[in-house]
Simulated scan of single mutants.
Amino acid sequence: MTITARHVRDTLTVYLEKHPEDEEALAGLNDVLDEAGDGITSRKEFRGHVTAGAVLLRPDGRVLTIEHRALHRWLLPGGHLEPEDDTLMLAALRELTEETGIGADDVTAQSPVPLHIDAHPIPANPSKGEPDHRHFDFRFLFTTTVDDVVLQEEEVTGASWQSADTLPGDILRARVTAAASAASA
């Protein structure tokens, strides 16, 4: 089953009920949803499209980051939606598994509501025929006790377990730090 605009909107609505302070930052997502409909899940929707990411937290408070081959940046595991994805959370789990080799049986989803939704620019990629565009990244919190990572080398060049307080973005860092504190209590 393909993820629909209705699923994206429902997930966004539940998220904003929990985090109303993010409404202004995500106004662009609502606009693209209104205009693109189900096309919001297509990587060819260059007004912006939805992606799914995973915040993978260990009991020691460290979070897995990966070095993205094309962007040359350290990021959370995640990526584009696929037609076989049923939900945004399962898409995040699929991306986590693909990029890191950590099996779905080795992680636990903490909530069906994203921990964070980030709207960020993606630079043009002429080799793929992609203009600059936006990603609306629905980030879900998962926990694990696994240490070992097996990289998907076509997209990922490195992996590192980082302290939650080193994550970029004040909102993401605060929410992951709070989740780490709650998990260790």
Rank of each mutant, 00 (worst) to 15 (best):
A180I: 01
R94A: 07
V50M: 06
P20E: 06
V156K: 14
D31H: 09
S111C: 06
A182V: 09
R69H: 13
R62I: 08
H68K: 04
G103F: 07
A185H: 08
A92E: 06
F46L: 07
H80N: 03
T143A: 02
A124P: 12
P77R: 12
R94N: 12
V14E: 12
D118P: 12
I117G: 14
P123E: 12
T11N: 00
L88C: 09
R58Y: 06
E95P: 01
D165V: 14
L93P: 07
V146D: 02
V176T: 07
D105F: 04
Q162S: 04
P123L: 11
D85L: 11
N125L: 15
K128H: 15
T41C: 08
E153P: 01
T108M: 11
S163P: 00
K18T: 05
I171Y: 11
G48C: 12
D22S: 14
E98V: 14
W74E: 09
E45K: 03
T2W: 04
L115K: 11
S42E: 14
L90E: 08
T157M: 13
T166M: 03
I171T: 13
D137M: 14
R173P: 05
D170W: 13
S111R: 05
D106Y: 09
A174C: 03
P83D: 15
A36G: 02
D105G: 01
T157D: 15
A178T: 01
T13A: 07
D147R: 15
V150E: 13
T143Y: 05
G39F: 07
E35I: 13
V63S: 04
A25M: 01
A25G: 07
I122W: 15
L141H: 02
A119I: 03
R69K: 12
D118E: 10
D22K: 15
G169L: 10
D85P: 09
T13E: 08
T65R: 15
A70W: 13
H49P: 03
R173L: 00
G101V: 02
L71R: 10
R62W: 01
P126V: 08
F136E: 05
I171L: 05
H19D: 02
R94L: 06
I66Q: 08
T65K: 14
P114S: 10
P112K: 06
R175G: 02
I102P: 00
D60Y: 05
E153L: 03
V14H: 11
T41Q: 04
A182C: 03
A180G: 14
P20F: 07
K18L: 09
F142A: 01
E82A: 12
